[in-house]
Each structure stands twice: as structure tokens, then as C-alpha cells.
């Protein structure tokens, strides 16, 4: 692939002191896709997770969708009596809604998971945690993926 042919004039305009070249941003859609919601319900066995107790950390503006760092942390004492059993991450617009599903317990000590994911396009992400008392908590984030410039020919 290569840069658009309008680019040359763009660059030359730039060289003449004109403003920014067009910035291609794909904005996330407003409504969540149904595949995402279904995948979450499959994970929770039909329960609607309540927002809170979960933090989902991801850069709001991603410079390359191939490798996006993401961290999920859940507030929990992580004891035998009260801990996080599972943490799952879902996305809206990749070909499949699942990203990662982790199983942990009191021996993890801390309910925190970091990985790197692919984002085909701008979209919403949802992290859901299953607590040892059977409740589900969640957090979501919107991510904007900018288009890569000079990629493989």
C-alpha cells in the first residue's frame, strides 16, 4: 500500500506553510453492537453486570491498532472469602467480541491483568469481572484508532 496521491500536493502545501494534513480519525459509533452484549451475557450466564469496581486502562487515542496496551484492575481483597474469579475483556468491532478471559483466585493476590490487543477500528471495550459471590461488575472505554501512515509496500 502507499500514501494517497493527494498527498504530494498536501506535502507541498505544507512546505508552503499551510496547516495540518488531513487527520483521519474514525470515531466510535454511539450504539453498542449486539454481538458485544451477547458475548457479555454468555460470560455472565445472562446477568447484566453493574458498572463499577473495575478499572479499564487503555490509551484513548491509539497510534497503531496492532498492539494496544490494556490493563484491567478490579478492587478486591483477594481473600478466600472475597475475591475475583474471572476477568474478561470484550470488544465491539473486531471480527470476534472476545479478547481475553482470565481465571484467577486468592493466590493471585491482586486482581490485575495487563495484555496487548488488536483494534481493527475505533470502538468500545468492556471489561467484566466475576466476583466470588457470583456478582458481575464492569467498566467500559471508548478508543479512537488513527490510521497508520507508511506501511508495507
Amino acid at each position: 500500500m502507499s500514501w494517497p496521491s493527494s498527498l504530494r500536493s498536501g506535502i507541498e502545501r505544507r512546505a508552503l506553510g499551510a496547516g495540518l494534513l488531513a487527520v483521519a480519525l474514525l470515531r466510535p459509533a454511539r450504539a453498542e453492537r449486539s454481538g458485544l452484549h451477547e458475548a457479555i451475557l454468555a460470560f455472565t450466564g445472562g446477568a447484566e453486570p453493574a458498572e463499577g469496581q473495575v478499572t479499564l486502562e487503555i490509551p484513548p487515542l491509539v497510534e497503531n491498532g496492532n498492539t494496544v496496551p490494556v490493563t484491567i484492575a478490579v478492587e478486591s481483597p483477594m481473600t478466600e472469602e472475597a475475591h475475583v474469579r474471572r476477568i474478561a475483556l470484550f470488544n465491539e468491532r473486531n471480527p470476534q467480541p472476545n479478547v481475553v478471559t482470565a481465571r484467577l483466585g486468592p493466590r493471585a493476590g491482586r486482581a490485575r491483568l495487563a495484555t496487548r490487543m488488536r483494534l481493527a477500528t475505533s470502538q468500545r471495550l468492556v471489561a467484566v469481572a466475576e466476583m466470588s459471590d457470583g456478582r458481575f461488575r464492569s467498566a467500559s472505554a471508548d478508543v479512537i484508532v488513527t490510521l497508520a501512515a507508511c506501511v508495507e509496500g
Partner: peptide, 9 residues
Amino acid sequence: NAGRHLGSS
């Protein structure tokens, strides 16, 4: 043009 943007890069 170093430091400026090409698309979003």
C-alpha cells in the same frame, strides 16, 4: 516537514 503530521502519523 519533520514534526508535522502525515495523516495521523
